[in-house]
Amino acid sequence: MSVSIQQVAVTSIARGLKTLSALLDKAKAHAEASGASPDAYVAARLFEDMLPLSGQIQRASDTAKGAIARLAAVDAPSYADDETTFAQLQARIAKTLAYVESVPASAFEGAETREVTVPAGPSITLGFTGLDYLLEFVIPNFQFHVVTAYDILRNQGVPLGKRDFLGIGPERVKTAA
Rank of each mutant, 00 (worst) to 15 (best):
A98W: 10
A64I: 02
R114N: 03
A91H: 07
T117Q: 13
K28R: 13
A98P: 12
D82Y: 03
D164S: 04
A72Y: 09
L53D: 07
D75F: 13
T11M: 00
S123F: 14
F128T: 07
T113Q: 10
A111S: 09
F142S: 02
K26C: 06
G157L: 03
S37T: 06
D62H: 03
R154H: 11
V42T: 05
V3G: 00
D81T: 04
A27C: 09
R59L: 15
D151E: 12
A73I: 04
L153Y: 00
T148D: 10
L97W: 00
L160F: 01
S2L: 14
E115K: 14
L153R: 05
A76I: 13
A64L: 05
A94V: 08
A149D: 11
L134G: 10
M50H: 15
G127S: 14
T129L: 03
I168Q: 12
V158W: 05
S21W: 06
P122T: 15
Q88Y: 13
D49L: 02
S78R: 15
E101L: 12
K174A: 15
S61C: 05
K65S: 04
A98M: 10
R45H: 13
M50W: 04
Q58R: 14
L53R: 01
I57D: 03
A80E: 13
V158A: 05
Q7W: 07
P52W: 04
A44P: 04
E115V: 15
R154L: 05
D151S: 14
E101H: 07
T129Q: 07
G121K: 00
E171A: 12
S61E: 00
T129M: 06
G55K: 08
D151K: 10
I68V: 11
A107V: 01
D39H: 12
S61Y: 02
I152M: 02
Y133L: 03
P38G: 02
R70Q: 05
L20R: 09
H145I: 05
S102W: 03
L134E: 08
Y41C: 05
M1W: 04
F142Q: 01
L97H: 03
A87E: 13
L46D: 03
G127W: 10
L135F: 13
F128E: 11
V147W: 08
E83P: 01
D164T: 04
L51S: 14
Y79T: 04
E83W: 04
A9P: 15
L134K: 07
L153V: 00
K162R: 13
I124D: 05
E32C: 10
R45A: 15
A149Y: 07
A76S: 14
A29L: 14
S34G: 11
A73K: 07
A67Q: 06
A14Q: 01
L166M: 09
E32Y: 15
S12Y: 12
R70S: 08
P52V: 04
D151R: 10
Q156L: 12
I13E: 00
D62C: 02
L126F: 08
F47P: 09
T117A: 11
R163Q: 15
L51C: 10
N141C: 05
E109P: 01
A120T: 03
Q88C: 10
V10C: 00
K26G: 08
